[in-house]
Design a protein around this nucleic acid. Structure first.
Length: 212
DNA sequence: ACGAGGATGCTCT
DNA sequence: GAGCATCCTCGTG
């Protein structure tokens, strides 16, 4: 599998969020189990530097078009294609990939994948009590399933052991949008992208939605 | 089916 | 000390 290159991520965040749908998330040599885990991305969210929900949104000043790269949020201005991984609610690791040219803030949150390789290892990692559909249909779940933690923070994700690989949508698959999940700011932005009616998206479609 | 609430730790004010 | 880009369990109808 060829990794998506740095240039894949060096463009507008919204474009990357859409383009990642159908691509593969590849994890080689997870700490438990052997071989390789592969998931097909079915749900993403976009976050940009001018976005109220952006981590450290106060780092970018639109008036002067200047940036302060400090703290955790400062890592969102890193070169494209590197990981932005942080702990949410003290329990769950969330995997993002940085977008836009270096110095411009942006990232895409990987929210859900459909397991396509190494499903048995993923079941082991997540615990056998879950239905298959519930193994990776959420950002915290897929991080646990793919053995992703802050070891990948600020790490180049265009090369093993964790990387993305190009993929396509099937003719019958269409992209839907909605507001983002679990945030209170900027509810009006339809910056969540997912495959309509796909069984592995993280939750039923919210009321506000429109197709594309 | 659905909603409420707890776990848990890091970042920033 | 508050606020989270979450997940799971345990109530109630």
């Amino acid at each position: 599998m060829d990794p998506c290159s740095t240039s894949f991520f060096r463009r507008e965040t919204l474009d990357v969020a859409r383009a990642l749908l159908g691509c593969r998330l590849v994890r080689e040599h997870p700490s438990s189990g052997q071989g390789r885990l592969v998931g097909r991305i079915v749900e993403t969210e976009a976050y940009t530097q001018e976005d109220p929900a952006f981590h450290g949104s106060n780092l970018y000043d639109p008036e002067t078009d200047t940036v302060q790269r400090k703290g955790l949020g400062g890592d969102l201005f890193a070169p494209p294609g590197v990981g932005y991984v942080y702990l949410c609610y003290g329990i769950h690791w969330l995997l993002n990939v940085v977008t836009e040219p270096e110095g411009t803030g942006g990232a895409v949150l990987i929210r859900a994948v459909e397991p396509v390789e190494g499903v048995d290892v993923i079941r082991d990692r997540r615990g056998s009590k879950h239905r298959d559909v519930d193994l990776t249909n959420g950002p915290g779940k897929l991080a646990e399933a793919f053995d992703v933690d802050d070891a990948f923070h600020s790490v180049d994700l265009t090369t093993p052991p964790l990387y993305f690989s190009p993929g396509d949508l099937r003719p019958e698959e269409t992209i839907a949008t909605s507001s983002r999940i679990g945030i209170s700011k900027a509810r009006d932005r339809q910056w969540r992208f997912y495959l309509r009616d796909h069984p592995y998206v993280s939750r039923a479609t919210p009321s506000a939605q429109k197709g594309t």
